[in-house]
Amino acid sequence: MHRSGILTIVAAAIFATAAISAAADTPANQPPPAPGNHNESLVVGAGAKKMTRTFIVHVPPGFDGKSKVPAVIMLHGAGGSGEGAIRETGFDAKSDHEGFVAVFPDGTTANPTLPARFLTNPRLWNDGSGRGAIGVENVDDLGFISAMIDFLEAHYSADPARIFCTGFSNGASMTFSVGLNLSNKVAAVAPVAGHLWEREKQLAYPVPLLFIVGTDDPLNPLAGGKVTLPWEKIENRPPVEDSLREWERMLGCGPQVQTARGKGVMEITYDQCARGGEVEYYRVTGLGHVWPGGKSRLPEKWVGKPSDSLMATDVIWDFFKAHPRTPAAKAKPIAKND
């Protein structure tokens, strides 16, 4: 097994230059990590904010540690884990078939002294909404993900032009935040059943967006409104398309084109974007708050019905594969007056 990478990162702010020291450098003659799952960790932050962050890296067969490969970061939903996201989405099997590195990070709990529990001590992402203890404490998830990307490039031959991020629910909202705030590091993003909570901002680089949601999602209803979360907390959710309109605004996109894909799947695209990139949106009829084509770990009374009408993992990888960061996009950020 590949040795666990432990880095110490001292950051004055999310995007400040980090001082990083490796606990153990990889010998030049060490073989590449073997196919399968590797548990990795980073120590992020300083002082009272220092914490050990964990993630699983899945290596596909044939990985030689020399050739640059794509990396797909999959962010779990509220109460989940990186390990659970593997079972839920099947991105490990997709990695094996397509040859990319799949990465499954863990969010943080409100009480790190107790075991993570879905209802009483869930792992969460600081997704920009300011909700809950994770938001109030301002956990630096963006700093963690940024450092993790650097680690993947250094230790797993991740191609800087093909770093992608996807996520579900709270992980989808974190994916929106990653695309917005780390647009210099990710080539494309694909949130599933979440919201972009940050408003009136601007992308520094044009990041293509794929979004998927079910028409019967009780936790992210298309029209918005009050929802009751599994831990009996009531929240008010905005309409789903508000998030898409923000991305369209930032990319300067033109009119939408709707295409029925069969089996109750509607595809909506905005591909004429003045600032680059594009927005692609799938609505799945009858789908609840469940990864499309995946395995739900929660009762139907909480999240609604599953659906195999669209296989999200396949669709997302096809989108990512078609949207590497081009040299022009990497070199030329969006002008502030665009």
Rank of each mutant, 00 (worst) to 15 (best):
residue 75 L to G: 08
residue 75 L to P: 03
residue 75 L to T: 12
residue 75 L to C: 14
residue 76 H to Q: 12
residue 76 H to F: 04
residue 77 G to W: 02
residue 79 G to C: 00
residue 79 G to Q: 02
residue 80 G to D: 11
residue 80 G to Q: 05
residue 84 G to V: 04
residue 86 I to T: 01
residue 86 I to K: 07
residue 87 R to M: 15
residue 88 E to G: 09
residue 89 T to L: 10
residue 89 T to R: 00
residue 91 F to T: 01
residue 91 F to K: 01
residue 92 D to Y: 08
residue 93 A to Q: 15
residue 94 K to E: 15
residue 95 S to T: 04
residue 95 S to L: 13
residue 95 S to M: 02
residue 95 S to C: 07
residue 96 D to Q: 15
residue 96 D to F: 02
residue 97 H to I: 09
residue 98 E to V: 05
residue 98 E to N: 13
residue 99 G to R: 04
residue 101 V to N: 11
residue 102 A to P: 07
residue 103 V to L: 03
residue 105 P to W: 01
residue 105 P to R: 00
residue 106 D to P: 06
residue 107 G to D: 04
residue 110 A to D: 14
residue 110 A to H: 09
residue 112 P to L: 14
residue 112 P to G: 10
residue 113 T to S: 14
residue 113 T to F: 09
residue 113 T to H: 09
residue 114 L to C: 00
residue 114 L to S: 12
residue 114 L to D: 04
residue 114 L to W: 05
residue 115 P to L: 02
residue 115 P to K: 08
residue 117 R to D: 14
residue 119 L to A: 11
residue 119 L to I: 12
residue 121 N to R: 12
residue 122 P to V: 03
residue 122 P to W: 08
residue 123 R to L: 00
residue 124 L to M: 15
residue 124 L to S: 13
residue 125 W to N: 02
residue 125 W to H: 06
residue 125 W to V: 06
residue 127 D to P: 07
residue 127 D to S: 15
residue 128 G to S: 14
residue 129 S to T: 08
residue 130 G to H: 14
residue 132 G to S: 15
residue 132 G to N: 08
residue 132 G to T: 11
residue 133 A to E: 05
residue 134 I to C: 07
residue 134 I to R: 00
residue 135 G to S: 04
residue 136 V to T: 13
residue 137 E to F: 10
residue 137 E to H: 13
residue 138 N to W: 00
residue 140 D to C: 05
residue 140 D to H: 12
residue 140 D to G: 04
residue 141 D to W: 09
residue 142 L to D: 03
residue 144 F to H: 01
residue 144 F to L: 05
residue 144 F to V: 07
residue 144 F to Y: 13
